[in-house]
Amino acid sequence: MVSPLHSNGRAQLREEKAVTSIGDLALKPDLRPELLLKLSGKLQTTLELSQLLEIFFEEIQQAVLVDGLTFAHSANNLLISQGKNSPHSVSYRLQTQQDYMGDLTFHRSTRFREHELANLEGLLTTLVYPMRNALRYYEALAAAFRDPLTGAGNRVALDKTLSREVELAKRHGQQLSVLMIDLDHFKQVNDEFGHSMGDKVLKDAADCMTACIRQTDMCFRYGGEEFLVMLSSADQAGALRIAERIRMSISDMTFENAKGKLQVTTSIGCATLRGIDNTDSLVQRADTALYEAKHGGRNRVISDADTAFTESERV
């Protein structure tokens, strides 16, 4: 079904894939059958969302000229654009009886006429099921790179993402920092409050970390009660500010079950990319800083610069 959010025309895709107008006076699409057949065939050639929308954007120009389109799916944190934004727009919700597949907005410098809206809605009916399949494929891929308990990225996702970001940061001369985060005395949480409480602490702590970072940053579960946060375009000072925000936010959280109330703290090690770094050396320096934070009494943030100073003192 294609439901308009900001237009007067409406069209509906029934299970038999027939388009019916809602209302006797609604305009019917005026589209060549061979255009719909060609468009439907091309949309079946990919499961990649960006490519699917690119094909749709290019092919519909034969029936309705549009300057650009924007696809949004808030649950999957997706925002994909083709072409350019313009002053006038019309938005539609894509859905079947079982699935919501996001909102699609068309942009144009001039207003859409009624017969153009009818044609857009007819064209959209060819997109509904390919979009559903592409979203399911996207969600399956995302699940393969996500820790099932916390929703943070897993080690496979970390290895792929961090390697790419280190390479890009070096190539373009950009800053990159990582935080190694450990929940203090986590074994005691499991021993004294039970594993279900331990699972809740891990999940809520991961949610808290994600809420403290920017959209360009990423949180990964490194293993057990350890997490790694990758901070794009963040120098040491910026990384330390975010680390302190995470530390304070987690320490403010309160958990409770039949065995009583619980508060947890974190120790955080911070490292910023250097010219000679690779992914292993960057993570190792953050891990060393984390060790110093735990060795120094826990519930604190230590940077790799601090550990270098401490090591020189020891020498």
Rank of each mutant, 00 (worst) to 15 (best):
L179P: 05
L179S: 05
L179V: 07
L179Y: 05
M180K: 08
M180P: 01
M180W: 03
M180C: 03
I181W: 02
I181F: 00
D182S: 04
L183A: 11
D184Y: 11
D184S: 10
H185S: 11
F186L: 05
F186D: 08
K187G: 08
K187Q: 10
K187N: 09
Q188H: 14
Q188R: 15
V189F: 03
N190T: 03
N190Y: 04
N190C: 03
F193G: 00
G194R: 09
H195L: 09
S196H: 15
M197R: 10
G198W: 08
G198H: 09
G198T: 08
D199W: 04
K200C: 06
K200S: 13
V201I: 03
V201Y: 02
V201Q: 06
K203M: 12
K203T: 14
K203C: 12
A205D: 02
A205H: 07
A205V: 15
A205C: 14
A205K: 05
D207I: 11
C208E: 10
C208M: 14
C208N: 11
M209G: 01
M209P: 06
M209W: 01
T210D: 13
T210R: 15
T210V: 12
T210Y: 10
A211C: 12
C212Y: 06
I213P: 02
I213S: 04
I213E: 00
R214S: 03
R214Q: 11
Q215Y: 12
Q215A: 15
Q215I: 12
D217T: 10
D217V: 08
M218Q: 15
M218G: 12
M218T: 15
C219I: 00
C219A: 14
C219Q: 00
C219P: 00
F220S: 02
F220P: 02
F220R: 06
F220I: 04
R221G: 08
R221Q: 05
R221E: 11
Y222L: 03
Y222K: 03
G223H: 11
E225W: 01
E226K: 11
E226I: 06
F227V: 07
F227S: 02
F227P: 00
L228S: 08
V229T: 13
M230V: 15
M230A: 12
M230I: 12
L231A: 03
S232G: 05
S232Y: 05
S232A: 15
S232P: 00
S233G: 00
S233C: 11
S233I: 02
A234Q: 04
